[in-house]
Design a protein around this nucleic acid. Structure first.
Length: 580
RNA sequence: CGGGAUGUGGCGCAGCUUGGUAGCGCACCUGCUUUGGGAGCAGGGGGCCGCAGGUUCGAAUCCUGUCAUCCCGACCA
């Protein structure tokens, strides 16, 4: 490709609306243009990269027997009504009407369509297993699109679906996808982790997320030196051993005026009731938090959560635990209905289905039998000290709602956890029979009986991956593409304007292309060398070949974009050097 | 949906306080010079100053409304 012919304009300044590196660089280097918030056009360079990523995905999907199909992006309402997602998706769904007033939507994902397609055409266990996938534009009307290509309202996604009669078949399809995804992300060349996704509401179905490790990521995950990795929502607390009650001091209530917060309580305890061995800390206190649950049927239920005072409730972890109920704040009017609750001094004494309030009381897993706590005495201005779990109070069960912190032990014993940010690039999920049931996807088994098909759904953010690659591979000069996804193999710059240089370059380009290399040939005649070098570095093709003064002696310069290393190579050896 | 900011050629910005012929840099076009690190000189094209009202002899500038965009948060592949 001759650069004089390429539809490209590079920009010297970062666009004002860009914040993250991939956004700035992809716009500056002429890969994409913004059309509307979260909606981008792909220019020739960008499309080449996108095609490379798609090719990797197609190869790896083919390798596990996936067959490609393509559904429309524009879809009728009906199938999504059957699974309730017309409603469930809420404002995130792009909705429109056709001229007859029929409701339509722009597909946010295609579980329904795949399920119905298989139902349409297949009716026997002999037809299964099957894996179908598509690479298609998806639409989600995000409340706040951001970070350019990384999180748009229109994006390209590979979604595949497996169809099996047996749970074992589903497990196999799931593992095949997991392996394929590992190969895909390895080839894309960015740092990623596989984390267990939330283990809550969907009832134990296996689910792994592939997260690109990025500062700009929107998911928080944890990992340990020993290789454990999980979404914070899926982290389980390491439960300490129970402690024998023998010798534990008896509980005693103390006056603790003006200590409605953990901070004031700890300060007061250290001042008025100092320990011999060490100061009191927030971890010695048991904080009791009240929330209101709203169940899907609209009813509400209060819930009390007891957790070490040095930890906050993590809203996301809590939501996963109580799903499908939703969490609402416990308001003043709710407190008014429970006169036994002494705000700021609430303790286990009145919590629990057996006690005065009758409010269900769940505690953090760290609150095991024999642990001693300072906690509210259910009287304003008073706390109980040495209140021992299992001896002086009990709860109605445990709940994983406390925040996860760096340094917490990994559940599998593989060391202290570290918190990091990631961006979801792939998600594999055992859907089970939910969609098949809703949509009536059944086949006849060997005995001639109708059985419901079990499904898996597996996504890769294809356009997002392009941005993630950039996020993981750039420097102050521009993008540094890994070979597998670079728009070209070689960027050849003519430094100079002597006709002999261009003639020589023409020949070199022809040789390289004959050897199967994609060459971006900067043949722009009047451009100064400095501009060409800057453009080459910004665009980020892995290998830059400079045809300049050395050509008279039969050598050109080969520069590695990533390392900056340059060396002179004889023209005669160039093809061999670059294809090695 | 809450908080903050910003809308001026393709891009980045100044001008607004104090109303008076719309400016700068980059990019683009022409010519000459230059040619290994975002060249120089000269000339040139391109604008409904987000939109709508209002005040005024006169509005990019003041007032009111409105729309949009960006950032932080809530939410989210």
């Amino acid at each position: 490709m001759r650069m004089s012919q390429l539809f490209l304009r590079t920009l010297r300044d970062d666009p004002a609306d860009a914040e993250v590196p991939s956004h700035k660089l992809l716009v500056r280097a002429g890969y994409v243009r913004r059309v509307a918030p979260g909606i981008y056009s792909w220019l020739p360079l960008g499309l080449r990269v996108l095609a490379k990523v798609e090719a990797i995905v197609r190869e790896e999907m083919a390798a596990i027997g996936g067959q490609e199909v393509r559904f429309p992006a524009l879809l009728p309402r009906d199938p999504y009504e059957a699974t309730d997602r017309w409603t469930e998706y809420g404002d995130n769904l792009f909705r429109l009407k056709d001229r007859r007033g029929n409701d339509m939507l722009l597909g946010p994902t295609h579980e329904e369509m795949f399920t119905l397609l298989v139902k349409d055409l297949f009716g026997s266990y002999k037809d299964l297993p099957a894996v179908l996938y598509q690479i298609q534009t998806k639409y989600r009307d995000e409340a706040r699109p951001r970070a350019g290509i990384l999180r748009g309202r229109e994006f390209i996604m590979k979604d595949s679906y497996s169809f099996d009669v047996t749970d074992e078949g589903l497990e196999q399809a799931y593992q095949a996808h997991r392996a394929a995804y590992i190969r895909i992300f390895d080839r894309l060349g960015f740092d990623y982790v596989i984390v267990k996704a939330d283990s809550g509401a969907m009832g134990g179905s296996a689910s792994d997320e592939f997260l690109a490790v990025l500062e700009t990521g929107e998911d928080t995950f944890v990992r340990s030196p020993g290789g454990y990795a999980a979404n914070v929502e899926a982290v389980t607390t390491v439960v300490p051993d129970a402690i024998a009650f023998d010798g534990l001091p008896a509980a005693h209530a103390e006056q603790t005026p003006d200590t409605p917060t953990i901070e004031t309580l700890v300060a007061h305890a250290n001042a008025a009731f100092p320990r011999d061995d060490r100061p009191w800390t927030g971890a010695d206190t048991l904080k009791n938090v009240l929330i209101m649950l709203r169940h899907p049927d609209g009813s509400t239920e209060p819930l009390a959560i007891g957790l070490p005072g040095d930890r906050e409730v993590d809203a996301k972890r809590l939501e996963v635990q109580v799903s499908p109920a939703e969490v609402e704040p416990f308001g003043e009017e709710d407190f008014a209905r429970y006169p036994d609750l002494a705000k700021g001094y609430i303790g286990p004494g009145v919590l629990g289905t057996e006690n005065a309030t009758g409010i269900r009381y769940l505690t953090d897993p760290r609150v095991v039998d024999g642990t001693s706590w300072i906690t509210g005495a259910d009287v304003h201005g008073s706390h109980v000290f040495d209140l021992v779990a299992g001896r002086d109070f009990t709860s109605d069960g445990t709940i994983e709602a406390a925040e996860v912190r760096a340094g917490d032990p990994a559940p599998d014993g593989s060391g202290p956890l570290e918190l990091a940010r990631g961006m979801e690039m792939g998600h594999i999920f055992q859907l089970g029979r939910k969609y098949a049931e809703r949509l009536g996807l059944q086949v006849l088994d060997e005995n001639g009986k109708l059985v419901t098909v079990t499904m898996g759904s597996y996504g890769v953010g294809v356009s997002r991956a392009v941005a993630a690659v950039v996020e993981g591979s750039y420097d102050e000069l521009g993008i540094v593409w890994p070979k597998e996804v670079a728009p070209f193999d070689v960027h050849l710059v003519v430094a100079g304007k002597a006709p002999e240089l261009f003639e020589g370059a023409d020949g070199i380009v022809a040789d390289l292309e004959a050897a199967g290399l994609d060459v971006l040939y900067d043949d722009r005649p009047k451009m100064s060398p400095g501009v060409k070098f800057k453009d080459a570095e910004l665009i980020g093709v892995p290998t830059i070949v400079v045809v300049g003064k050395g050509l008279a002696d039969g050598v050109v310069e080969v520069k590695d974009r990533a390392t900056g290393e340059r060396r002179d190579v004889a023209v005669a050896d160039l093809v061999a050097t670059l294809t090695a």
